[in-house]
Simulated assay, not measured.
Amino acid sequence: MNTRQRSILLVEDQPNTRRLISFTLKKAGYQVHEAENGRDALDLCRQAEPDLILCDVMMPVMDGFEFREHLLADKQLQHIPFIFLSARAQTHEVINAQQLLPLEYITKPAEPKHILKVVQSHLP
């Protein structure tokens, strides 16, 4: 039986949102790695090899769409399950996100318990 703690890379530029989601995930037993933009997340992803990525769309330096494109182009990282978080729920943004093959697109504000349920559905 594999008892390794499952890890999540949380990419969120808003510190309060990042802390709240991170706290909820850690309390549920996940190891959480945090980044505040896509560029930092890409570096961290290569080091930490997370089991799942939970990523905001609108961020400085490198947004979530560009970060996802980099992951999909990298054979070592493209397999990592990916969930978008975004305050933007306009149809064209959701369509753009879907073209990048995420597992889910969660609109914010989202209750941390809802985010946890979505994560748990992909990381049992």
Rank of each mutant, 00 (worst) to 15 (best):
L25A: 11
K27L: 12
E69M: 06
A41W: 06
D13S: 12
F65I: 09
F23H: 13
Q98R: 07
R19Q: 14
A48E: 15
N2G: 08
Q76I: 01
A41T: 04
L103K: 11
Q78H: 05
M59E: 01
L85P: 02
Q98N: 12
Q120H: 04
C55M: 11
E34L: 07
P50Q: 07
H114C: 06
L72H: 01
I21P: 03
D63R: 10
L44D: 02
P15Y: 14
P109H: 07
P60L: 04
N37Q: 12
R19M: 13
L103Q: 03
Q5C: 09
V61I: 14
D43P: 00
Y105N: 06
T107N: 13
T17F: 14
V119Q: 01
E93K: 00
F84G: 07
E66Y: 08
T3Q: 15
E111D: 15
K75L: 12
D51Y: 06
Q5N: 04
V11S: 06
V94G: 12
P60W: 03
P109T: 09
T24E: 14
S22F: 05
H92V: 13
L25Y: 10
H92A: 06
G38K: 15
L52C: 06
A97N: 08
Q120N: 02
C55F: 11
R39L: 15
D43E: 14
T91V: 15
A97W: 08
K27Q: 13
L52S: 05
A35S: 10
A73H: 07
E93A: 08
R46K: 09
C45G: 04
P81E: 11
N2R: 13
D56V: 05
I106C: 04
F82C: 04
M58L: 11
I95H: 04
A73R: 05
G64I: 02
P112S: 10
Q76F: 01
P50M: 13
V57C: 04
F65L: 09
Q90K: 12
E104R: 06
V57Q: 05
L103E: 11
R39I: 07
V94P: 12
V118L: 04
A97Q: 10
S22I: 05
M59W: 06
E66R: 11
Q47M: 08
L42Q: 00
E93G: 00
T3R: 15
I21V: 13
P50E: 14
R19H: 07
Q98D: 11
S7G: 03
E49W: 00
P102T: 09
D13C: 04
R19C: 02
L25N: 01
H114D: 13
L85Y: 04
Q31D: 15
K27E: 14
P102S: 01
R88K: 12
H122F: 11
P60Y: 05
L85K: 04
Q31W: 07
L42N: 00
P124V: 08
A73S: 10
H114N: 08
L71S: 02
E93F: 02
E49A: 04
R6N: 09
L123C: 00
D56M: 09
V118A: 01
A35H: 05
Q90F: 11
D74S: 02
K26C: 10
M1K: 15
F82E: 05
S121I: 10
F67C: 01
K113V: 14
A110C: 08
S86Y: 07
Q90I: 10
T91K: 15
K26L: 10
E36Y: 08
Q90P: 00
D56H: 10
L101N: 07
R4D: 15
L101C: 07
E104W: 06
T24M: 13
P50F: 12
K113W: 13
